[in-house]
Design a binder for these strands. Structure first.
Length: 87
DNA sequence: CGTATGACGTGCA
DNA sequence: GTGCACGCCATAC
């Protein structure tokens, strides 16, 4: 059981999984909750490679309020946020 | 093991 | 308000 090596990746995914519908968090917030407030860049990188549909990574946006990006298309991200009334 | 990458953030012109 | 450059950290190759 390696849960101590990739803790950050798993933690980030876990945090994103915990994001309630209709709410959005910034990469900085996610990284902070993951235990590394300065790893917001790595957090985004992990989400980028994460293809797990169980992870509502579309609920993670920039601190500036921008959409940022989405592995499935920014349009899809914007659409999901609008459907969830998160925006 | 070292290099390159990236869905970021902040500061400055 | 806009654009550019630097920094910063984990992951992938």
């Amino acid at each position: 059981m390696g849960f101590l090596k990739e803790n950050f990746k798993e933690k980030v995914l876990a945090v994103v999984k915990k994001i309630p519908r209709g709410k959005v968090l910034s990469y900085k917030e996610v990284a902070k909750l993951a235990g590394k407030p300065k790893a917001f860049r790595a957090a985004g990188n992990i989400l980028n490679k994460n293809f797990d549909v169980s992870v509502p990574c579309h609920r993670v946006i920039r601190s500036d309020g921008e959409m940022g990006g989405y592995n499935r298309g920014v349009e899809k991200k914007l659409r999901l946020l609008k459907k969830e009334k998160a925006i």
